[in-house]
Each structure stands twice: as structure tokens, then as C-alpha cells.
Design a protein around this nucleic acid. Structure first.
Length: 480
RNA sequence: GGGACCGUAGUCUAGCUUGGUCAUGAUGCUAGCCUGGGGUGCUAGAGGUCGCCGGUUCAAGUCCGGCCGGUCCCA
């Protein structure tokens, strides 16, 4: 019938349009009245909550606490660290009035909170005994996106967490940077089933104001790289202008060593792009708001009663195991309609129960990822479904790993590089370390250095641009 | 940063070139029936400042300008 309610384009034919349709039609989000802003609908927010709780638990387990920072930052504070300010100022929203009265020191809607947090930290930190200070903030950040906005990937306001820590030594701070990156990697790989490459950003691509930035990157099915999360070593770059200092054990006044780090709802965008298919969203069981939907099938009234009773009974059994189960007992839709509807929403597992099944004492399971059908006896529901979820989670991860490895290639020759980058590849190439070569590549091909992997395999070939001896191999790609 | 396109009930859409009973159709929604293992069928009903503001005109969904919002492509 009407195709308009489903996804009308194929993922590999019109990727952008496909993405836009999926986020809207699966009811994750909708456009707000102001350009570049989106509304999270309950289904989308629910996914964010799973992500949030996964990260939050890991942060708390490693000694972090949550706090809250206000959204307004006075310009005088924001501009204290000059390179940082210069980096962010083009996309800052300013509050200039309260009522009709003009505000003297205009207020920024936070693009990120380093400056505000550290002005507070300087008050709170006096002694080495006050360190380490490790606070995380769940909030939103605002960065004006003038053009090409896209739900979850590029919006003028986004949900994220930003962590800010202060330490007595650089070693301790650098170890914190890695702890966080590892928490991020685990969350993305284990919950979202998306493999990432971890490493450092180049000088050009690092966070403005940081000493260095570590990152995790992944490749999307359209061949563009996506930055999935970053963890920065700030050194004393902020502690000096913001006067975050303490007396150490030798009674010497010392500036603190700092880190900051964040992941945003952009991860939801990655989730959609990596796992989705022509029918819509495909959610890994660990982050699916509804893990299995039970579709009762009946025609006669007695059948209906028996089937619904069984459906609810199965739901209860599974709910007791901690699974999130929904019985779709809507009477106004046919089973076929419901199948399509829940497939669009990416529910990992569908359970069909009808009169035929009751007679045989079993139910039909259909996996969202593979659409493969199988039978499951009522007696072994818990183990059967749990096993199914594990299988789906694992298969999605394996499939995504395959995508990443297919899209990754070592290239040492510039003309081959140019050819490969056109096909949407993630290329590992030798690089002399000079920013000029990095800029040249960007100019000629549109590709950035996305990440210099920690486990980089040196090709020892000459720099792909200038031909001088290379310092390292770096991963290049066009990015979001 | 450069370019192309779009905006008409919840959704998709006809009409715009050539201004004048043109607000079209479908889907969705509500009620009642029918049906139900892959987007079911019938009957009745509700639903519109044609994105906003201004201009041209006797007359604007239609022509012109500005604004707002959205999509895609390239850097």
C-alpha cells in the first residue's frame, strides 16, 4: 500500500535521504521550529538514556562524580584562554539582553565549559589534598551551525557529557585521558556494537587549547569517518590562565595538570548509520528501548483471548529476566503492518504467537538484523531469547568490524590515495608530520587526518605528500 | 564557503508555465462493520490562515520581493 509510511529510498542508493527518513520515521527525533535544533522524542531519548547510563556507571566506578554547570558564560571568562576562544568564537550564540536592557559583558551559551569549570576549580583547589578532582557534567552544548545541519550529527545544540579533571602530576592526568578513552571505546564497542580506531589527533585537528587530543574514529557506510568521542590532555594550558593551582607536599605552588573529555548523542547517529538497513533502524539489543516485540495473531474471538493471554504470559516471564518486552495488541492494525512498523523502529527481535503456535506449544522468532525466522518452545523462552539477543549483538558487531576492515587500506602512493579516497576509504598512509602536507591533502582531496592510531604499523615509506622520510603513518578520510 | 532544489489537512501530493467555482487525490485520523501468519476491504465523518510578511492586480496557492524553515550536492 502506501510506501510513504516506510523508508522510500535504499541505504546504498541515497544515503543522506535514507538517514533523514530513518531518524524522522522511526520517531527518534523531529525538527524544532528554530533552524538546526531538534527535539528528541521518547524513543530517541530512551536510546540516549541507555548510552548515558552505560557511560555514567563506568565513570562512577572510576572515581568520577557528577555536577552541573550553568548554560551562560560571560565573555570575559570565555576569552581568557586565547586560542581556545579564537577556535570557538565563530559558532558561539550570544545573549546580549535581559529584557530590554543590554548586558554589558555579553553572555555566551556554552559551546563547552572548560572556562567556566576551571574558574570554579581555581576556587575549590588549594592543596594537593584537593586532588585529583574529577567531575563530570551531563548537559547540552550550543554551537551555531549555519549550514548543513543533520539530526544527531550536526545540530546547533547537542546532548553530551563533558568531564573536567585536575591532577597533581602530568603522568596522572595522562593516565586519566587514557582511562576515559577506554571507557568510551568499551561503551561504543560493547553497547553500540561499533568498532573504533583509537589514537591521537594531529596538531591541526586537536581540541583548541589542548596539549593533545586522543580520539576514537569509525567509518560510516557512506565512506565518511565519524569522530565518536575525544579525551584531551590539557597540560597546564588552562590551569595557568584560570589560576588552578595548589600547594604540593613540598609547599611549592604548582599549576594543576588537567584533562577534559566528552561523548555526545552523535553516537546515536553512528548507530543509525552503521546498523540500519533498507527497512529502517536496526538496534543492538543492549541499547534497544524495546528488545522484543510480541505480535499476537488471531482471527476468531476465542483465538484472540488465548493468544493474548499467552503473549502476556511470555512477556511477564521475559520481563522477570530483565528484558524489555512489548506486546503489540493494537487491534486496528494487521500483523503485516505491525511487522513493518517495528522493523522500521529497529526492534531487535520479533515474537509471533498465533493459534498454530499455541497448538504446537511454540512461538516464531524473527531477528531484525537477518530477518531469519526460527521456532522456540514455550518451555525454553528465557534461555532461547537471551541466547538470541547475545547472537544479534555479536553478529552486529562482527558485521560492523567487517565494514571497518573493508573500508581500511594502507596506501603509500599519492595517485592511488586520490583514487581510493574517492571511493570512501579510510587510508593509512605515511606522513612526515608537517602540517603543510596535511593541509595539502585536505586541499587536493578533502581528506583529513582522522587519527594516528596508537597501534600504528609503520610502513617506513616516504611521506605520501612531500616524499621526505615519514615520522608515522596516519589514518586519512573525509569526515562528517 | 560555493551551488541546486523544496514548503498546499498529521503525511505524501495535483494545481503554479498561461492569475478568475481549483483547493485535487491518496494515505492517516474518528465511528461502525469486515479482516488478521508481511503495509486488508467497505460505509459514513472530521480535518486547510495554500510557511510568514509585504508588493502588483478588480482578483494571488498561482506573478514579484524579503524573511523563516527544510533537503541534496560540492569544498
Amino acid at each position: 500500500m502506501s510506501k510513504e509510511i516506510g523508508i522510500t529510498v535504499k541505504k546504498n542508493e541515497d544515503f543522506s535521504e535514507w538517514y533523514t527518513q530513518v531518524v524522522i520515521k522511526a520517531q527518534l527525533t523531529d525538527y524544532a521550529p528554530v533552524k538546526g535544533l531538534i527535539v528528541l522524542r521518547p524513543y530517541g531519548y530512551s536510546i540516549w538514556e541507555f548510552l548515558k547510563s552505560s557511560v555514567d556507571q563506568k565513570l562512577k566506578a572510576t572515581g568520577h562524580e557528577n555536577g552541573f554547570l550553568p548554560v551562560l558564560i560571560p565573555e570575559s571568562l570565555l576569552s581568557k584562554e586565547t586560542t581556545h576562544f579564537a577556535g570557538f568564537t565563530p559558532e558561539v550564540f550570544w545573549v546580549t539582553h535581559s529584557g530590554d536592557a543590554e548586558i554589558g559583558d555579553r553572555l555566551a551559551l556554552r559551546p563547552t565549559s572548560e572556562t567556566l569549570a576551571y574558574s570554579m576549580y581555581s576556587k575549590w583547589i588549594k592543596s594537593w589534598r584537593d586532588l585529583p578532582l574529577k567531575i563530570n557534567f551531563w548537559n547540552s552544548a550550543l554551537r551555531a551551525e549555519i549550514k548543513s545541519t543533520k539530526p544527531f550529527l550536526r545540530t546547533s545544540e547537542f546532548l553530551w557529557q563533558e568531564g573536567h579533571t585536575a591532577h597533581t602530576t602530568p603522568e596522572e592526568a595522562e593516565s586519566e585521558v587514557m582511562t576515559i578513552l577506554d571507557i568510551y571505546r568499551k561503551t561504543v564497542e560493547e553497547e553500540l556494537a561499533i568498532p573504533v580506531i583509537v589514537g591521537k589527533k594531529s596538531e591541526k585537528e586537536k581540541f583548541v587549547g589542548a596539549v593533545y587530543t586522543t580520539t576514537m574514529e569509525s567509518i560510516m557506510p557512506d565512506g565518511k569517518a565519524l569522530q565518536m568521542g575525544t579525551s584531551h590532555f590539557l597540560g597546564q594550558n588552562f590551569s595557568k590562565p584560570f589560576d588552578v593551582k595548589f600547594l604540593d607536599k613540598q609547599n611549592i605552588e604548582t599549576f594543576a595538570w588537567q584533562t577534559s573529555w566528552g561523548v555526545s548523542w552523535r553516537l546515536i547517529g553512528a548507530l543509525i548509520m552503521v546498523h540500519g538497513d533498507d527497512k529502517g533502524l536496526v538496534l543492538p539489543p543492549r541499547v534497544a528501548p524495546i528488545q522484543a516485540v510480541i505480535i499476537p495473531i488471531y482471527s476468531s474471538q476465542p483465538d484472540k483471548e488465548a493468544v493474548l493471554r499467552k503473549a502476556n504470559e511470555i512477556k511477564e516471564v521475559l520481563a522477570k529476566c530483565g528484558f524489555r518486552i512489548h506486546v503489540d495488541s493494537r487491534d486496528e492494525f494487521t500483523p503485516g503492518y505491525k511487522f513493518n512498523d517495528w522493523e522500521m523502529k529497529g526492534v531487535p527481535l520479533r515474537i509471533e504467537i498465533g493459534p498454530k503456535d499455541l497448538a504446537k506449544n511454540k512461538m516464531v522468532l524473527v531477528r531484525r538484523d537477518s530477518l531469519k525466522k526460527s521456532d522456540l518452545s514455550f518451555e525454553t523462552v528465557e534461555e532461547g531469547v537471551a541466547h538470541m539477543f547475545d547472537g544479534i549483538q555479536e553478529d552486529l558487531f562482527e558485521k560492523a568490524k567487517k565494514l571497518l576492515s573493508e573500508r581500511t587500506k594502507n596506501v603509500a602512493d599519492l595517485s592511488q590515495f586520490k583514487k581510493e579516497i574517492e571511493t570512501g576509504m579510510f587510508l593509512s598512509s605515511p606522513w612526515c608530520g608537517d602540517q603543510k602536507c596535511e593541509e595539502k591533502i585536505k586541499e587536493d582531496t578533502g581528506a583529513d587526518i582522522r587519527v594516528i592510531p596508537f597501534d600504528v604499523k609503520r610502513s617506513n615509506a616516504p611521506c605520501i605528500v612531500c616524499g621526505k622520510p615519514s615520522k608515522t603513518d596516519a589514518m586519512f578520510a573525509r569526515g562528517y
